[in-house]
């Protein structure tokens, strides 16, 4: 990919206190597994997103330790119970140390 990994996150804009909402997250990333070989027989080195985390107002909600068996453009769908308005912070960590983030606000009444 010539462009930097891009997150794409779907979170409802509003919810009622105590409601469980569903978050859908995608990030563009080849997830090079380290199993492939190039034309000359050399192993193409592994380079994946190895961790995904979601926090809400600073509290951990969900996280995933990721292995090369997760498909390219990793997709995660999970739930969060919201009791107050605030901000979801999503983080993806690359093998090379890069960290990609996205933030989404939700209004809870």
């Amino acid at each position: 990919m010539s462009a930097a990994p891009k997150p794409r996150v779907k979170v409802p804009k509003k919810a009622r206190a105590g409601e469980i909402v569903v978050l859908k997250t995608l990030i563009s990333h080849e997830m090079e597994s380290g199993q492939r070989k190039d034309k000359d027989g050399n192993v193409i080195p592994r380079k994946i997103i190895n961790k995904f985390t979601c926090e809400f107002n600073g509290q951990p909600v969900f996280s995933c330790d990721i292995d090369p068996a997760i498909s390219a453009n990793p997709y995660f769908e999970f739930s969060a119970k919201v009791n107050e308005s605030g901000t979801f912070k999503l983080t993806w960590v690359d093998d090379d140390g890069s960290v990609y983030t996205d933030e989404q606000k939700i209004e809870v009444d």
């Binding site: 891009k6 794409r8 779907k10 859908k24 995608l26 990030i27 453009n73 997709y75 769908e77």
Partner: peptide, 10 residues
């Protein structure tokens, strides 16, 4: 939303 092709559209 789940369609990974939309990453290319973005």
């Amino acid at each position: 939303f789940a369609n990974p092709g939309m990453l290319a559209v973005e």
